[in-house]
């Protein structure tokens, strides 16, 4: 494998968990809900995925367990913010704090144990093509799932009736309610979808990226995914581009560290966080870009007028 292939491969591996978590949150935010609990749902997905895979020996069972864990956490968030109409910012934070704690508790028995790695796809002949074979046809299955999900979300949001309803609910929940759409139900469904992809993103970390359980192994990726959604101005295509850009920055830092160019490793490790802030500033200065697509009801609770 040539160095350029190796670098591209690692960039895709670093980007996929960001893309998975962010594409779910994009749908959640398009429906007018701000879920700051991604980090918590993701880390729960990581630990439950690892535990299920380790116990059963099947990586796919791990993936399913991670999705279930993500959905469970997201439904807690939904229960509070949709049914009990709590503050979404604070509730998201509580999901993150709870997730980080619970995952540590569940994972305390799994630290240092060998994990199960999700095997890469291998298509005879195609995967062996020079240069592009491994890159396009030999990734792990979740990479393809993440890309398929992005395309599906882009299609559903912009071209289907369901997407229209989701966007209506996010733009003006009162109007959507008046038209007879069940605002709370739509939002619950979107929140659960966000939980599922966050759980999947966690599974990616503990079953593919580093097949083991390390406490707090999400390392702020949930928050970066949130920033990505803002950066993408709620458009799936731009989101995917942003995710691969961020993955690139992450990997750039790692390679620079490995080469040891005399730059402190801490400075390179802080690169993704610095870039996140810079990206947010750039996108926020362009008011036109960010205002057009911002869901108008974002973060507001909905109480139907009885």
């Amino acid at each position: 494998m040539s160095p350029y292939e190796a670098i591209l491969l690692t960039i895709i591996t670093a980007s996929t968990p960001l893309l998975l978590a962010a594409i779910g949150e994009l749908v959640v935010e398009r429906s007018g809900v701000l879920n700051l609990g991604i980090e918590g749902m993701m880390v729960m997905g990581a630990v439950c995925g690892f535990a299920a895979a380790h116990v059963s020996g099947s990586a796919w069972l791990g993936v399913i367990a991670a999705i279930v864990a993500g959905i469970a956490m997201s439904l807690l968030f939904g229960l509070l913010t949709q049914t009990l109409i709590t503050n979404q910012v604070a509730t998201g934070l509580s999901i993150t704090l709870l997730g980080l704690g619970l995952s540590g508790l569940i994972g305390s028995g799994f630290v240092g144990l060998p994990g199960v790695q999700l095997a890469n796809v291998s298509i005879p002949w195609l995967s062996d093509l020079p240069y592009v074979g491994r890159l396009i046809f030999g990734q792990d299955p979740l990479v393809y799932i993440s890309i398929a999900l992005t395309v599906a979300v882009a299609y559903v949001l912009s071209r289907t009736r369901i997407g229209l309803i989701i966007r209506a609910v996010g733009q003006s929940h009162d109007s959507a309610h008046a038209l007879g759409y069940r605002v709370v139900a739509v939002r619950y469904a979107c929140i659960a979808f966000g939980g599922a992809t966050s759980g999947l993103a966690g599974a990616y970390l503990s079953l593919v990226y580093t097949p083991q359980w390390i406490e707090n192994m999400t390392a702020g990726r949930g928050w970066i995914a949130l920033a990505l959604v803002v950066f993408s101005t709620w458009l799936p295509g731009r989101l995917a581009a942003g995710a691969y850009l961020f993955g690139g920055v992450w990997i750039l830092g790692l390679y620079a560290q490995a080469m040891g160019m005399g730059i402190p490793s801490q400075l390179l490790s802080s690169l993704p966080y610095v870039v996140t802030i810079v990206a947010l500033v750039i996108i926020s200065t362009n008011r036109r870009l960010s205002v057009i697509n911002t869901p108008a009801s974002l973060g507001q609770g909905f109480v139907p007028d009885r």
Binding site: L84, I85, T86, A90, L93, L98, L100, G101, L102, G104
Partner: peptide, 26 residues
């Protein structure tokens, strides 16, 4: 038991306060 119980208790506490705070307005 794991020292993570602290974080779990703290997370649950915030979760339940937010739940119960609903009863202030409703």
């Amino acid at each position: 038991v794991s020292d993570k119980t602290t974080q779990v208790f703290q997370g649950m506490l915030l979760f339940f306060i937010l739940t119960c705070d609903t009863l202030i307005l409703y």
